[in-house]
């Protein structure tokens, strides 16, 4: 009986299972030859980051924008039905935080305006905690871009993903 592609595929034939098994074993030596080159390339890779000026009792300090982005993203991820996709930081000429652009996806059925408002507040709160200076949304631009809607997998795990190609 011919298998139908519309339902789950069964196990492969013995022949193809053996072939796949051999493929898994074949290239380890190649990776051994390549590994150091990959590590060297990674060591040279630079992630763009800029200093962001913060303040504590002893005076000013500088926080990497990479760290600040991570803290903002982590905080926003705590909002139910919101996933932070990216966080962008803009600073002024003397490294003060000038703007935060937060890109998020929201769960299907969420009120986007409410979610966006809450995300702005949480982003500002996270920046305040990280920098030690009050980040108010009337002084620092906090833009929230809702770029996508997702199905909450905790409620519905049956959907198929159709991720777009780059």
């Amino acid at each position: 009986m011919e298998m139908s592609p519309e339902r789950d595929l069964g196990p492969p034939s013995d022949l193809l299972a053996r072939a796949a098994g051999e493929l898994r074993q074949l290239t380890d030596d190649g990776w051994v030859r390549a590994e150091q080159g990959v590590l060297d390339r990674v060591a040279r890779a630079l992630r763009s980051a800029r200093p962001v000026r913060g303040r504590h009792e002893g005076g000013d300090f500088f926080l990497s924008s990479t760290v600040l982005c991570a803290q903002v993203g982590t905080r926003v991820d705590l909002i139910p039905g919101v996933r932070a996709s990216s966080v962008r930081i803009v600073t002024d000429d003397v490294d003060h935080l000038d703007a935060v652009t937060l890109t998020v996806s929201v769960a299907y059925g969420q009120a986007i305006a409410d979610v966006g408002s809450r995300a702005r507040g949480e982003a500002a709160a996270a920046a305040t905690a990280a920098l030690g200076v009050q980040v108010r949304t009337d002084q620092v631009t906090v833009d929230v871009l809702v770029e996508d809607v997702f199905v909450d997998e905790a409620r519905d795990d049956g959907g198929a993903d159709d991720a777009g190609e780059d």
Binding site: L26, T27, W31, A34, V38, V42, R47, A70
Partner: peptide, 30 residues
């Protein structure tokens, strides 16, 4: 590496692709 080699069958090309993939991943990790 194994996936790249099966797709390209050219060790030098695979090394380049895997190196660039990891470098891109590092740069885009945030």
């Amino acid at each position: 590496y194994r996936f790249g080699l099966r797709m390209l069958r050219d060790e030098h090309a695979v090394r380049d692709c895997v190196q660039e993939a990891f470098a891109s991943a590092w740069e885009a990790l945030d």
